[in-house]
Design a protein around this nucleic acid. Structure first.
Length: 449
RNA sequence: GCCCCCAUCGUCUAGUGGCCUAGGACACCACCCUUUCAAGGUGGCGGCACGGGUUCGAAUCCCGUUGGGGGUGCCA
């Protein structure tokens, strides 16, 4: 799954890359048990492509799921060992705890000066120098760490495989990365990486740590607890443009105060220095508001086409008829996945009556006379929304009812529900025969039961 | 435990010492519009975590407290 938090960091990176005419390289280094399964990686690629990040965009590269620099990782580590910037260690965790008597203290540097050679079961540790490490962060400013509090961390495991910290640095180095934009959870490990760069004798990249996204409980968004998969939002009918726009407003705001704005304007307005320092809550309600606005702003053809994945499953679906009511649908849905439930009555001859709606409208004394009158006058009315409305108004006048009351039983008879698309436009789309048929069905249903 | 980060309406944010009686957006409430529901319009509710400084003046600068988050593995 492609995490919404990762998506936002990616978007930040992408904006910067576009501004600088450079390339944003995305490496997904978070492994889980499903790592490298094609269905997992292709899901991520699809989700990113949905956002617009794919090979068609020259400012985007990736995503990479696996490093192709394994040999360089080890070579770099060995260079550090050769220059005594790192040393081999055969201590186990239990050894260290036994010596220090403290389970939550770091490594005690026992092997620092033992001059152990490489060998099976021996890890390679970085020799953290004395002094301080200053991380200059584009978002947070200067952050200073006391090296004495940083343990001699492992570069290479006992089996010779590289640790993430090292692999990450070497990959960045190999790929020519000059700016690292990532979530703030990585900030405490940044001095370690910076020391590796320094030890390798290479100028380290610029750092920028952006705040994390959190849930209602203010905890970092997690796969287990929270709805974080971008794919899920795509499948519910959120628009990529709305998602991009919303994600950008979490932790960043445009200098001119606009929230909803075109993507290219966001790209040129974005500045790392304007990014907030505090975590932001991913608020689906606000995403809904953005999505609704984006949907309403779509032109009709685009809207109809965008609905296709959802409308195709509707029984009896007819594209032309859908197009005729689409303007009314567009105004009322927040997610495209809501479209079928809003319009299925227009296509499916089997009306599904909502029990509450039925009870509320069909058990009144007025229901039967209204439906009978409608049956009579709709038979000869000219078949357009305005005329049908006039007809219905006339029925109501005869009974001393306002249009709101008069239309209710007709609406439930035809659509099955008390709420929905504008009634007379729906009747027009359905056609005279079908409307008359449904009025009859409803009348029978009242009589029968 | 230790280290790091953070702290403005419920939420996202504007605010970089006087323009702040703290502005906007979402949500919520009310009213208007209205064939239902929406959309739209108008209005309302609602916040600088706390305590000390510095200053003529602090949401804004400094210190502390509290609260939250993250990190601290031969995880990534």
């Amino acid at each position: 799954m492609f995490h919404v938090g990762s998506a936002r960091s990616a978007l930040f990176n992408w904006c910067l890359a576009k501004q600088a005419g450079g390339t944003f390289i995305l490496r997904i280094e978070d492994t889980d048990e499903s790592r490298n399964r094609p269905e997992w990686t292709s899901g991520i690629v699809d989700a990113m492509s949905w956002l617009g990040m794919d090979s068609a965009d020259p400012s985007f590269e990736g995503p990479y799921f696996q490093s192709s620099y394994a040999a360089e990782h080890v070579a770099a580590a060995e260079r550090l060992a050769a220059s005594r910037m790192a040393y081999y260690c055969d201590c186990t965790r239990d050894d260290v705890v036994a010596r220090t008597g403290e389970a939550n203290l770091g490594y005690d540097r026992h092997c620092r000066d033992r001059d152990l050679g490489a060998g099976p079961g021996r890890a390679l540790r970085f020799r953290v120098p004395a002094g301080h490490t200053v991380v200059d962060d584009r978002v947070r400013g200067r952050v200073e760490f006391d090296n004495a509090l940083i343990e001699d961390f492992v570069l290479l495991r006992g089996n010779g495989s590289p640790m993430f910290l090292l692999a990450n640095v070497v990959d960045d180095l190999q790929m020519g990365v000059t700016l690292v934009v990532r979530a703030e959870e990585h900030l405490p490990n940044t001095p370690k990486q910076q020391m590796i760069w320094d030890a390798l004798g290479v100028e380290h990249p610029e750092w920028a740590h952006v705040p994390v996204l959190v849930n209602e409980q203010r905890k970092k968004l997690s796969k287990r607890r929270d709805k974080v998969a971008l794919e899920m939002y795509r499948d519910e009918g959120y628009l990529p443009a709305a998602m991009r726009n919303y994600l950008m407003t979490l932790g960043w705001s445009s200098p001119d105060g606009r929230e909803i704005m075109p993507w290219d304007e966001i790209v040129s307005a974005f500045r790392l220095e304007d990014v907030n320092h505090s975590p932001a809550f991913f608020d689906q309600k606000k995403l809904d508001a953005f999505n609704g606005e984006y949907i309403r702003a779509m032109d009709l053809d685009t809207f109809v086409q965008a609905c296709a994945p959802w409308t195709s499953s509707i029984t009896g679906f007819d594209p032309e008829r859908f197009a005729s009511i689409a303007p009314h649908v567009r105004l009322r849905v927040v997610r495209l996945a809501e479209v079928p439930a809003a319009v299925d009555f227009v296509f499916d001859h089997e009306v599904r009556f909502d029990a509450d709606s039925w009870d509320k409208t069909m058990t009144t004394d007025a229901a039967v006379p209204i439906l009978r009158s409608a049956l009579a006058s709709f038979g000869s009315a000219s078949w357009d929304a305005d005329s049908l409305k006039a007809c219905t108004e006339q029925i109501g006048e005869g009974m001393g009812l306002k249009l709101g009351k008069t239309q209710a039983p007709i609406r439930v008879a035809v659509t099955g529900r008390t709420v929905g698309l504008p009634l007379f436009e729906s009747l027009e789309a359905l056609g005279r025969d079908e409307v008359i048929r449904r009025l009859g069905v409803a009348l029978d249903r009242i009589g029968g039961g």
